[in-house]
Amino acid sequence: MNLSPKDLKQVVVFQNATETELQLILKNSIIRSIEENEFFFFQGDAAEYLYILITGQAKLMQSNPSGQQVNLRTLHPWQMFGALGAVRAEAIYPATAQALEDSSALAIESGFLHKLLETSPKISFDLMTLMTSYIQEMQARYRELATERVEQRVANALIRLAGQSGIRAEKDAGIELSFSRQDVAEMTGTTLYTVSRLLSDWERKGYIKTGREKIKILKPHDLVRIAEGLEK
C-alpha cells in the first residue's frame, strides 16, 4: 500500500500540514496490518509509536486490575490514536487498541512527531483541537455515569455509536450498528444482563431490532427521548 501526502490530509491533525511535513511523516512511518481481534498495542506498553488507522475498524479499551473492560472509543480510517507518546516523553499507552476487523494503520515514531510538533504550530494546534474534543466527550460520559439512570446511559451509548459509525439503512429501515450487547455493556459500565433486559424491552416497543452483533435503531426519536430523560 502506497500512501501519498494527499491521503494524510484526511487526518484531522495533519489537515494544515505542509507538503514537506507530510513527506517527512511518511518517511518516518511504517504500515502495520493486523487481522481481526489482534492488537496494535496493549495498555501499559511503552508508547513508542502513534497510529493512524488506514483501513478497517478498531477499538480502544481500558481494563482495571481485576480485568473488567470498558470501551473508550471506536476508531475509523484516518483517525489518529495512541498519540500520547508524541507529547509526553516515556509515556505508556493508557489503553489497548484491538482490531474489530482486518485493519491496517500507519505507525509513526512518537519521538519523530514530538520533534515535528516543536517546529509546527499548525500541527500542534490541530492536535490540541483533537485532544480537547476527546476531553469534552469524556466529560459528557462522566456526567452520564454520575447522574443518569442506566436506561439513559444505554440509550446515550447507542446514539453515540450511531453518530460515530451508524449506517442509515435503506429507506425506512433504520440506523444499523455493528455492536454486540457486550460492547454496549462495556461502554456504559453496566452488566450484560442489564443491557439485554433494556434492549429486549425496547425491541418489544419497536424502538430497535437486535441481531447477532447488530443493533438497528428503528425509532431514533424515541431513543433520543429516553437518552435525554424526557417522557415520550
Binding site: R160, G163, R168, I217, P220, V224
Partner: peptide, 8 residues
Amino acid sequence: GCRLSHFC
C-alpha cells in the same frame, strides 16, 4: 441540536 438528525 439532535445528534441523530443526519439520519432522519
